[in-house]
Each structure stands twice: as structure tokens, then as C-alpha cells.
Amino acid sequence: MVKLIGLRGLVRQWVDAIEVHDRKVAKLLCRMIPASCPFERDIKFFKRILFHIPPLCQLNPLYEQAIGLRLKALSYLADECGEDVALYC
């Protein structure tokens, strides 16, 4: 049975298949993909929190693939290159 995969599925497979074998590319990926969602905010007024904006990154259909790619880059830098990855955490 042939399974039809949509464009989103193909992009997910393509991102999952990316291998990191270059130190410069790994460092670039670690700098470009944030460790946590950058959109989470507390809206304050006179030191009182009016409301909280939750992290919305999980709504991105490629969020898990981006985090996985960042993990691959961190693993490459730590395991293969022997670098301290605390800078990127």
C-alpha cells in the first residue's frame, strides 16, 4: 500500500534526514535555533503581571524537527569535536 505524504510530511522527513558533519554548520545551527521559545512573555504594569503569553513554538509544525536538528548539532560539537556546548544552552 502506497502511503501518500503531504508537503509537510516531506519537509519533516527532509529535515530529519539532515546530518551534521561540519563544525561551522553545527555552530551556526546552535546559534540560529533557540534553546527555548523566544516568544514567551510576561506583560507587566508597575511590577505586576497583567497576563502571560505562553510559548507558542509548539504550534509550529516543524518545531520538533528544528529542536532535533539543534540536538544533532550539539551532539556533533560535543562528541566529535570535543567542544564545550554550555555556551549554546
Rank of each mutant, 00 (worst) to 15 (best):
S36D: 11
R41W: 00
K44H: 11
P61H: 08
F45W: 12
A78M: 08
H21D: 13
E40C: 10
H52L: 06
S36T: 11
A35R: 10
R12H: 09
E64V: 10
L62I: 07
M32V: 07
R23G: 05
D16L: 10
L87A: 10
F46R: 15
P61K: 05
E19P: 01
S36R: 13
F46Y: 12
L4C: 06
G82T: 03
C57H: 07
V15W: 01
L29S: 01
I49T: 15
V15L: 15
G6E: 04
R8C: 00
F51N: 03
R41C: 06
K44Y: 12
V20F: 04
L29R: 02
A86I: 03
K24C: 01
D42G: 04
L71H: 11
A86N: 14
G6I: 02
G9T: 02
E64D: 11
G6Y: 02
F45Y: 15
R23V: 14
K3I: 15
K3R: 14
L77E: 02
G9Y: 01
M1Y: 07
A66Q: 07
D16P: 01
V11R: 09
I53Q: 09
C81Y: 01
L71K: 15
D79I: 09
V25L: 11
P55Q: 06
E19M: 07
R8Y: 06
P38F: 06
L77Y: 05
R48N: 14
G68P: 01
I67T: 10
I5F: 08
Q58A: 12
K27E: 15
F39I: 05
V25A: 12
G82S: 03
K44M: 15
E40N: 06
V2M: 12
R48M: 14
R23Y: 05
C30T: 08
Q58N: 09
E19L: 09
M32T: 08
L56Y: 08
L59T: 07
S75P: 00
P55S: 11
Q65W: 05
L71P: 00
A78G: 02
R48A: 13
K3L: 14
D79A: 11
D16H: 07
K24P: 00
N60S: 12
H21C: 05
H52W: 09
L59W: 06
A73D: 04
L77C: 07
R23C: 06
L71F: 02
